[in-house]
Design a protein around this nucleic acid. Sequence first.
DNA 1: TCTGGGGTCCTAGGACCC
DNA 2: TCTGGGGTCCTAGGACCC
Length: 423
Amino acid sequence: MNDKIFVLVDCNSFYCSCERLFRPDLRFRPVGVLSNNDGCFVSRTNELKKLGVAMGAPYFQVKNICDKNNVAVFSANFSLYTNLSDRVMNTLFEFTPNLEVYSVDEAFLDLTGFEEKTIEDYCRNIKATVERNTGIPVGIGIARTKVLAKLANRIAKKDESTKGVYSVLSAKNLEYALGRVDIEDIWGIGRQNSAKFKILGIHKAKQLRDYKNDLLIQKQFTKVGRMIQDELRGISCFPLNNETPKKKEIISSRTFGRPVFDKASLRESIACYASLACEKLRKQHSVCQEIEIYIHTNPFKEIPQYARANSIKLISPTCDTRKIIKQAWELLDEIFISGYEYKKAAIKLSRIQDQDEHQVSLFGENDSVDDLKLMLMMDTINARDGHETLKIAACGTNKEAWYMNQVMKSQRYVTGWSELLKV
DNA sequence: TCTGGGGTCCTAGGACCC
DNA sequence: TCTGGGGTCCTAGGACCC
């Protein structure tokens, strides 16, 4: 057992809470947020969970339940969620600089050195402050390791008696939590591995902690499985990651709003996704040296299926949207077959390197200073005046043939001047 | 009619080298 | 006709996360 103290702060039903923030009338109504294209539920309030709507449930399959129970259903409004996420993280940062933003709605805090007696009160203060500053409710778990903090956080959310904060620093609470949490609910143990654990007779977190044959765990569940086991024992294996690492690959993909048959639409969509991916690439001052594209039909539909990927390694790395679109289109030419009903396209940029550190190629065409200046200017203008104020012509002007459906989207309350809340 | 999007890490096995 | 031992690097695929 080490003496570290990890705290996990996790926003409750995050996307739904964001929607409720500007719609106080929804406070007691079930709320759900859908994935892109209004496909599946990706966030649900407790009221919606109680109605039996599962995570990932396709909307059209549970629409009846939603209509009957007056559920407020929203299309995803990611610019809103990202903005509110930043506010939550900034508030947390005021409590400690030892903070890892783990996901859009979660952060680990390293509060090692705090007195055990007062730590819970301190966390209740964190919770109250976040809720006061941002309006987003959070749950907090406190433990010796990250895996245990996740576990404690689970209890904090499930047990109302905890009032949203639970510590497993004490042996009593720790035993209770370990005995209660199922193997498949441990952070890092998914469906496949929990099935394997059950064959070994391990059903609860406690049983994994106490399992004596470490070698077998290592062999069957790899190094990661062993580290999770140690974390359950209070031995910290996953350190706090202070700075956000640069992406090693960047993917941009969308399901189409309508069936697509023609190459022109695919070309347009891929150009748009490439533009998005390149923007992210340049934002982290990187270049990429490999491009992959992917197209496929709708696997849920009983129609002739077709799915292909195609990739190319570039001679010289680049972050120039124009070059990447050109390459992506050539890749598309090689795999496109007409006659299929396409549902989705994607682009992946990989072999990512730092812009100023990468090896300049003797042969290929390197990005010139002028190329970079042009891209930078585009990014600057788009950041200032809005997404796609300036764009590559290849992206097309009307995306009607393929753009996603979002018929229940809330206003951009905090990111668009024209959509501010009217009081 | 309608089923998301974006990531990371680990390992086994092949290719290759001396 | 016979055919060792040791090492590194890369990649595809699986599993996991939110």
